[in-house]
Each structure stands twice: as C-alpha cells, then as structure tokens.
C-alpha cells in the first residue's frame, strides 16, 4: 500500500522522496477537553518502520495527539475526539473498533517510567499472558528473554528477574517499560517524551534502542528536545497551538524549514 498524497501548498502532510508503506493516516482530527478545543484538525501520515517525532512548545497538543492514536484519551471523561485515524482501513476512533484491541496493536511508553509493582519477569510476562500469546512455562520464559534482549536490558537483569521492577534505575525502568510494550507484539509503539525523566547516558541508550526497534516497529515519539528529534527521527512534525505547522523529512525540517514559526522554534526564539 504505497500512497503518494498530493499536498498542494499545504504544509500539513508531505510525501517522502522514498516510498514507504503507510501505517496510520490521520485526517482532520479534532479533540476537545470539555469546552476547550485542544486539537484543531490534524492531518498526518505515519509511515511503517520509521520514527516520526512530534515536537513543539509545551501545551501544543503533541501528547494529546499521541494519546489519540491508541485512544488513551478515552480514559479522560471530558475528552471528545472527531475525525479519522485510519489503520487497516478502519477509523480506530469509531466505536466499532475495540480500544483494547487497538492498544494491543499500538503500544505506549510513558514520560515517567511506570513499571508495575511486580517482579521484572512479571512486568514483561503479565500482558502476553492476558493476551494468551504464550502459555506459562518455557514459552513464556523465552518471550520474556526475547523482549528484554530487544530492549537491551537482558544482560543487566538476567540474574535478578525476581526483583521488583521498581528496584531498577530510571533508565533501566524505562527500558523495562519498552520491553513490556514489545512483549505484546504491537505494530506501533508510541513514546511520550520517553527520556525526559532520564539522565544523558540513559537517554543515549534509549535513543540507540529506538534505532534498533524501528526495524520491527513503527515508532511515534513526542519529544521536547529538538536535538533528540534530529538524532532519532526520520520524519518530524512541528505542533503549535493544536495544529501541525509543518511536517517533513527531519533533515529538511531542521535545515530548511518552510514555515517562519518552525524556524523561530528550532532556532530557540520561543518554546
């Protein structure tokens, strides 16, 4: 499914030079918290096995947008979304799509590492067991090992799988959360400022990990850190006041931004 989207003059979507399969397409997505509108008609394409970064000043709606992709906003009673988020030819915002199924397919890693108050092993094994992906025993052990390896954590924790997940360091906890997300075998992993609570070394580790992961997963990452977007992302979208101001190839975006606002932002004039 290779689509080239025509975008005459519109800065909101773009078609990359090289063709990629589309994972999700977002059209005219609007969202309200009660009376207050937080997203004003977002159009965005998310390409398979690429990293898409969402940047912008705080309160610009980038996290809200991310949480629409797996309908985490459903948990907020006052939130109401309109528009299309297409995946597998279905609008995942519609009531016909089971949000639990969606979340299995679109996993999420949060800003603050939030391992469950269980053992490291259980943190990873818990959801796959619920989804009946593996049966208890050897199969489960293998999945846990595979996921922890994929998250680059195996060597550090293989001797202490019974320890509580909360006993790990911040960076390790975040990789545990990534392992936990991988273990349910999603297609997309959403990351909401995954390194903002971490030290620079842990951040570097996670950024490397993201490069590894994009072979198997589509990644959408929200970051407040433009250097990070420049380092990890293939594509970058700049959000401002609930709108996408510019969406482009990362290198293009940072070298020759189309929009004045984007340029102001990436040159640090506001934020």
């Amino acid at each position: 499914m290779t689509t080239k989207l025509a975008s005459p003059g519109a800065p909101v979507t773009f078609s990359p030079e090289t063709t990629h399969d589309l994972e999700m397409t977002v059209r005219d997505l609007k969202l309200w918290y009660g009376e207050k509108q937080a997203l004003h008609g977002i159009d965005l394409d998310i390409y398979q096995n690429n990293i898409t970064a969402l940047i912008g000043p705080s309160g610009c709606g980038k996290s809200t947008f991310l949480r629409c992709l797996n309908r985490m906003n459903d948990l907020i009673p006052s939130a109401r979304a309109e528009g299309e988020v297409m995946m597998e030819g279905k609008n995942v915002l519609s009531k016909q799509v089971d949000e639990v199924a969606l979340r299995k397919k679109v996993g999420m890693v949060f800003q603050k590492p939030n391992p469950f108050p269980k053992s490291i092993y259980e943190n990873v094994a818990y959801a796959p067991r619920m989804h009946d992906i593996v049966s208890k025993g050897k199969e489960q052990d293998e999945l846990v090992e595979r996921s922890l390896r994929a998250a680059g954590l195996w060597d550090e924790v293989k001797d202490q799988l019974g320890q509580p997940g909360t006993s790990l360091s911040g960076g390790q906890q975040q990789r545990l959360c990534i392992a936990r997300a991988i273990a349910v075998q999603p297609s997309v992993i959403l990351m909401d400022e995954p390194t903002s609570a971490l030290d620079p070394i842990s951040t570097a580790t996670i950024e490397e990990l993201m490069h590894e992961l994009k072979r198997d997963f589509t990644i959408v990452v929200v970051t407040h850190n433009m250097q990070q977007a420049a380092r990890v992302a293939d594509y970058t979208a700049f959000f401002h006041l609930g709108e996408v101001i510019e969406y482009n190839d990362t290198a293009m975006m940072f070298s020759t931004p189309d929009q004045k606002k984007t340029e102001d932002y990436i040159t640090g004039r506001y934020g």
């Binding site: 995946m87 597998e88 089971d98 639990v100 969606l102 397919k105």
Partner: peptide
C-alpha cells in the same frame, strides 16, 4: 507479522465479558 485488529477483537470477546 502482528495480528490484525479484527483478529484481536475476536479473541477479546470473552475478556470483555
């Protein structure tokens, strides 16, 4: 290859109940 949304939804019925 990850399962499709429809497949997952079918498996979820019991859990939703």
């Amino acid at each position: 290859m990850a399962q499709s949304l429809d497949d997952i939804s079918r498996q979820l019925k019991k859990r939703h109940r």
